[in-house]
Simulated assay, not measured.
Amino acid sequence: MATSSEFSAELLKLKKDHLVEIILNKCVPSTISVSEELRRHVEDTENDGTSKLAKVNLENNIPFIKLESELKLTKVELECSKEIIATLKTTVSDKELIITLLQKSKQINSAQMDCSVADAVKKSSNQGNQENQRTNINQINCGVANGMKIDSNHGKQNQPTNYSGNQGKSQEPINKNKAKVVGSNEKENVFKSAPKRAVIHLGRVNLNTSPEDIKNYVVTTFKRNDFNIEPCPVREGAKSISFRIETDISILEELYLSENWPKGVLINRYRFFRNQTAAAEFK
């Protein structure tokens, strides 16, 4: 029968990873080739005094101490690597979130700029029409005043008197471009304001698309069921159709993200027209 010193010598001939595996498992795995006597000695006499003595001798051996130290260092490096990987994942996630927010902000600013340009052009057009109307009124007033002056010189007629009692003065035109006023009285009143809603125009849609198709798509994409879909009037010979989409104001930013819509369709602000002809031409 082999002695403890022979077992120790046989163990020290093994590879580092095999020796560490035997120490950790307190047995000899089937994948490690050792003598049957050593295998029985390790597995059957773990609590025996002789085994304990052999274990003490092995633990006091310099190669064993070196292996144990390397094993501890490996465990520490593994834990550090796990922490570093977790930190890197968090950093990458934060960077992706920042990039997404910047892209959303850029798209929203572009949409707001387009709306501002459209409002400025419309306002400029309205002001030009008002200036022309004011010029025509002034010309008419001048002609009337000159006619009355001629009649006064010939027939000595009195100048017309306006409703304010001032002679020879025309009333000032009413300013129709006053700024909008938003109510702020929070007391209980007879009526209340309606909740804000987001209204957009979905254009350049295939002719075979129905309002139900649009409703199913937006409900699935935006995970809510409060959409109101209305088809817009279509002019004769049109190659596409459009829809009016109304929903809660809270998802306005998501409505203007291009990745939320099929390729090629057009998303912009819905314009409210007074007549059906203008609405049909808006695509």
Rank of each mutant, 00 (worst) to 15 (best):
R39K: 07
I108N: 08
V218N: 08
K104G: 05
E254V: 00
G165K: 04
K95Y: 09
I251H: 00
T100D: 14
G168T: 07
N141A: 06
K178G: 14
R134Q: 11
I22K: 03
K215V: 03
I32R: 04
S35N: 05
K123A: 13
K55P: 00
G143P: 02
R204F: 09
N57M: 10
I137M: 13
E246F: 00
D119W: 08
P29Q: 07
I22E: 05
K52P: 02
L73V: 03
S4D: 11
V121C: 11
S125T: 15
N177R: 04
I65S: 00
S69E: 00
K75A: 00
E259L: 12
C142T: 13
K192G: 11
T31M: 06
E10D: 12
T74W: 09
V190N: 09
P211N: 05
I267E: 12
T135W: 04
T45H: 09
A54F: 03
E36D: 07
S250W: 00
V56M: 04
G183D: 15
W261S: 06
P160H: 02
W261R: 06
T74F: 11
R235C: 10
K180I: 05
R224K: 06
N60L: 02
A120C: 11
T221A: 05
N129G: 14
I23R: 08
F7L: 01
T74V: 06
K55I: 00
S110D: 14
R269Q: 15
K52D: 10
R39G: 01
I62C: 00
T45V: 03
L101S: 12
G203L: 05
N166R: 09
L38F: 01
H201G: 14
V218W: 03
V76F: 07
C232A: 11
Q171A: 12
L255S: 02
A118I: 03
S250V: 01
N153C: 04
V121H: 12
N208A: 04
S152G: 07
S164Q: 13
R244N: 06
I229K: 00
R235W: 04
E6V: 03
P195R: 03
S81M: 13
L71V: 06
R134D: 14
F64E: 00
K55W: 09
K176E: 11
V144H: 14
S193H: 10
E230D: 08
D151C: 05
N61Q: 05
K15D: 14
N268Q: 13
L12H: 04
K55G: 07
A54T: 09
V144E: 15
I85T: 15
H41Q: 12
V199N: 11
Q130W: 01
T247A: 09
G143K: 07
H201L: 11
H41K: 02
R197P: 03
I249M: 13
K15G: 15
S116N: 07
V56P: 01
V76E: 13
D226G: 05
K196N: 14
S184L: 12
A238H: 05
P231G: 05
S93L: 12
I23V: 10
Q103C: 10
V56Q: 04
P233H: 03
N166P: 01
N158P: 10
P29F: 02
K75H: 01
E188L: 05
N189E: 14
V219A: 14
V28I: 11
G203A: 14
K123W: 08
S210H: 10
C115H: 09
E230H: 09
S8F: 05
A2K: 15
V182I: 15
S152H: 05
A278R: 09
N166L: 10
